[in-house]
Amino acid sequence: MSVPRYWRNEVPRYRLMGRKCVACGARYFPAQPVCTCGGTEFEDIKLVEAGEVVTWTVIRSPPLGYEKYAPYVVALVELDDGMRLLSQVVDVDPADVKAGMRVEAVFRKVREDGPSGIIMYGYKFRPMVE
C-alpha cells in the first residue's frame, strides 16, 4: 500500500473517527462523501470503543501481506453506539470467540510493507479486559 493511501486514513483508523450527516443524523464509518439523504455536510464523531461480536470467521488462507498473522479472527462487531464495523479480534483463541462476546478497541500493527517499508497500524478488537 502506498504511503499517501495509508497516511490519509490514519486518523479514522487510529482513533475510530466517523462522520454524522448534519441533515439527517445518519452516521458513517468510514466517512462517505454523500449521505443517502443527499446531504454533503458532516460532522466528526468518535465511535465508542466497546461492543460485541455479531458474527466472525477465522482467516486461514490470508491475502498477501497478512500471511504472518494467520490464522486470525475477523468479526463483524456492533459497537455500543449501534455502529457496526469489520475488525480483527486479537488476543483470543479462535475457538473461544462467541457471538455476543464483549470486545474493546485496541491499537495494533496491521501489516508491514516488507522489512524496509512503512509499518501500518490500525484498530483491532480484543476480548474486554475488566
Binding site: 493511501r5 486514513n9 479514522p12 483508523r13 464509518f29 468510514p30 458474527t55 466472525w56 470467521t57 477465522v58 482467516i59 488462507s61 490470508p62 491475502p63 501481506g65 497478512y66 498473522y69 486470525y72 475477523v74 468479526a75 463483524l76 464495523l85 469489520l86 475488525s87 480483527q88 496491521v110 501489516r111 490500525g122
Partner: peptide, 18 residues
C-alpha cells in the same frame, strides 16, 4: 472496499463465512 474492509485482512471466503 480496500481501506476499511480489505485492510482488516479479511478474504472473500471470510466475508462469506460470516
Amino acid at each position: 472496499e480496500q481501506e476499511y474492509t480489505a485492510y482488516t485482512g479479511v478474504t472473500q471466503a471470510g466475508l462469506s463465512a460470516m
